[in-house]
């Protein structure tokens, strides 16, 4: 769906997050020329329409002591990937689960999951246990631990106008 001008303005104004003000929606409205009630109604409508998934916080896992961040990738036959994706998506160890295209010959994996933990040993053990428990140990998989984080910020939407060609 197309965003309305008001929705677009709100998304752009929220790029750096919600103001830390006791009336944050009023403060947000002042930036974009909208009243508090209008902001509240607009955000509620965007949540209802599924444009906003949720409002809240995203944590930096590393700062919370989750030092090991593994991207576990699986090569699952196309006919099975939907069922396996649902299975892994519901597994308690898995925080994200996406199907993505293969890029052969260099990349043959089509299901991407993230597993976070305190250290590599415990994450590797959890992944082994997960594969065994869900009956997936026979599928090719790889575990790509992160070595360095260069950047972590939220996706910044609402840049439509300046990004226009």
């Amino acid at each position: 769906m197309e965003l309305s001008d008001r929705e677009h303005a709100l998304i752009a104004a929220l790029c750096d997050g919600l103001p830390l003000d006791s009336r944050p929606y009023r403060a947000l409205g002042e930036r974009v020329g909208m009243g508090e009630a209008e902001v509240l109604a607009c955000l509620e409508a965007m949540a209802r329409d599924g444009i906003i998934r949720r409002l809240g916080v995203i944590v930096r896992h590393h700062e919370l002591g989750y030092r090991a961040n593994a991207m576990v990738v699986w090569d699952i036959p196309d006919a099975e990937v939907g069922a396996v994706g649902r299975l892994l998506g519901n597994a308690p160890e898995v925080t994200l689960c996406y199907r993505r295209p293969r890029r052969p010959p260099d990349w043959t994996y089509n299901l991407f999951t993230m597993v976070h933990g305190r250290d590599r040993e415990s994450v590797a053990a959890a992944i082994e246990a997960l594969a065994d428990r869900e009956g997936l140990a026979h599928h090719p998989r790889q575990v790509l631990f992160s070595l360095r984080r260069f950047k972590q910020c939220g996706a910044r939407y609402g840049r439509r106008r300046e990004a226009a060609e």
Binding site: E2, R54, V59, L64, A155, Y157
Partner: peptide
């Protein structure tokens, strides 16, 4: 919340979007 943001515990405080609902797009690149 201000301190948690300043300390970097929170990477974001605000909305998480379903970008594909408004024509947005994101991709993983290697």
């Amino acid at each position: 919340i201000r301190r948690l943001r300043e300390d970097g515990v929170l990477s974001r405080f605000g909305p998480m979007y379903n970008a594909d609902r408004f024509g947005g797009h994101n991709t993983l690149v290697a």
